[in-house]
C-alpha cells in the first residue's frame, strides 16, 4: 500500500447545516405577539475577551504574580491517555496538593486547563468552551507529544496536531505519556513562568482572538456555540 494518495482532496465545499434548534425562527406568544428568536445571538453574550492590563507599578504586578503562582486550580478534565497520570498525582503517592495544586470540578472554579493528550475535534469544542469559561488569569498546559505535534496520532483524520493553533499554551510537558514526576516538574516551571510574568496566555488569546477563532472554526464544522463562551 502507498503511504499517501497524492490525488486525495478533502471535501472543502460541503457546509455542515446549522442544527435545527439553533436556527433563527419566529415564535408566537400566547397573547398573539410574534417574537423573533436567533438563539446564537439572544441566549449568549457575544462580548469578546479583553486584555487584562498590567498594574502601573512593577512591584505590585510582581506581587500579583507571586500570589497567582501559588494559586493553581486545575480543571478536572481529561482528554487523552495522559489523564490517567493525573489520578496518582492527586492521590497520596505523588500528592500534588502539597505544592498548592488542586483540582476543581468546574471551569468556573479553575484557572489551569491541562490538555492531557490527544484532542479530537469533538473534544476540542468542549475544551474551548471550558477554557473560555474559566476566570482570568488562566493558564493552559499541553501534556504529551500529541498536543505538541500530533504524537502518534500525527496522521489521524480526527485529532488536532498543534494545540497552540487553537488555545494559548503557556507550557508543554513532553513525553508519551509524561510520568507524574514530569508533571510536577512542569507545574514548578509554570509557577516560575507565572512569577516572571511570562504566562500571559489569556492576554494572548484576547489579543489574537480573531486568529484563534478562525483556526478553531476551520476544523470545527458544526459550530453551535457563541464565539466567546463566558
Amino acid at each position: 500500500m502507498k503511504d499517501i494518495d497524492k490525488s486525495f482532496r478533502k471535501d472543502t465545499e460541503t457546509e455542515f447545516p446549522l442544527r435545527e434548534e439553533l436556527r433563527p425562527r419566529s415564535v408566537t406568544a400566547p397573547d398573539g405577539q410574534v417574537i423573533e428568536i436567533d438563539p446564537l445571538q439572544d441566549y449568549f453574550c457575544q462580548e469578546p475577551p479583553k486584555v487584562h492590563k498590567q498594574s502601573y507599578f512593577k512591584i505590585v504586578e510582581d506581587f500579583y504574580n507571586w500570589a497567582r503562582a501559588h494559586s493553581l486550580w486545575i480543571l478536572g478534565f481529561g482528554t487523552g491517555c495522559g489523564a490517567i497520570e493525573m489520578r496518582p498525582l492527586m492521590t497520596p503517592r505523588f500528592d500534588a496538593y502539597r505544592y498548592g495544586i488542586q483540582w476543581r470540578p468546574t471551569p468556573r472554579q479553575a484557572n489551569l486547563l491541562v490538555i492531557s493528550g490527544y484532542l479530537s475535534v469533538k473534544t476540542l469544542k468542549r475544551a474551548i468552551r471550558a477554557y473560555e469559561q474559566m476566570p482570568s488569569p488562566k493558564y493552559v498546559v499541553g501534556l504529551g507529544s500529541c498536543t505538541i505535534n500530533g504524537g502518534m496520532y500525527w496522521d489521524s483524520y480526527n485529532t488536532i496536531k498543534r494545540l497552540d493553533d487553537y488555545l494559548p499554551v503557556d507550557l508543554y510537558i513532553a513525553g508519551c505519556m509524561p510520568r507524574p514526576e514530569a508533571l510536577l516538574a512542569g507545574f514548578m516551571d509554570l509557577k516560575k513562568l507565572i512569577r516572571k510574568g511570562k504566562a500571559e496566555g489569556a492576554n494572548k488569546y484576547a489579543e489574537n482572538f480573531d486568529w484563534y477563532k478562525a483556526n478553531q472554526k476551520s476544523v470545527i464544522k458544526d459550530w453551535d456555540m457563541p464565539d466567546y463562551n463566558w
Binding site: 482532496r9 505538541i148 476544523v219
Partner: peptide, 8 residues
Amino acid sequence: SQQTFSDR
C-alpha cells in the same frame, strides 16, 4: 490530516 491540521 495534512490538508486540515498544521504541522510543527
